[in-house]
Amino acid sequence: MPHDHMSPSGHPFRADDDVPLSYWQAMEIAVRELLIEKGVTTAAEIASQIDAMDARSPANGAQVVARIWTDPAFRAAMLQDASAATAAMGFDIGPMKLIAVENTDTLHNVVVCTLCSCYPRNLLGLPPDWYKSRAYRSRTVREPRAVLAEFGVTLPDNTEVRVHDSTADMRYIVIPTRPAGTDGWSRDDLARLVTRDSMIGTGRAKSPEGLAGTDRPT
């Protein structure tokens, strides 16, 4: 087997990105440079916005879920008006309008945006690439159980699967069920069980055994 297509580190070489800019890439650069030239914004402001976007992560959503698990009044507030409840918790949600949907023993929620890639970025950060793929967007509304099974989530027939197609103004966060064996855990420990996928609905929260031994609360 020849190895000339492998780098010395044993990984395949990746082709250089030697393609012309697309129409929209050229448009973005032109508009950005004009806005800077005309003093509407600065390069530093753009960089700090990118940093702010990158700083958002599923850890924000995990804090919200852990609080829902431990604070019944907050849970009620989240189910009533998730935008107001997360804003009151100190998250800068901007113009986002949020709905929280809660999994139970008989209901499993999963979120998709068939028309584009709507996603609660303020709580979960940037969406994973698969969330924006045609395969996920088209198959999740057509055969959600098959898609969930590929993510490792198999559900009994008596559990209703409810797909939320984020078609217009609202964004969605799934509240996964609280894993067994976590009675008395602190909110921070619980938050470490809450994965990004569990808040999209393509996963479950980790069980205590799912945490590395040293991470497990004693």
Binding site: R142, P144, D157, E160, R162, V163, D165, T167, A168, M170
Partner: peptide, 18 residues
């Protein structure tokens, strides 16, 4: 949405419609 041949007929889907 998909007719009786769907994966699980009693599963549901919610969408925002103007």
């Amino acid at each position: 949405i998909w007719g009786p041949q769907t994966e699980t007929p009693h599963d549901t889907l919610e969408a925002e419609i103007y």
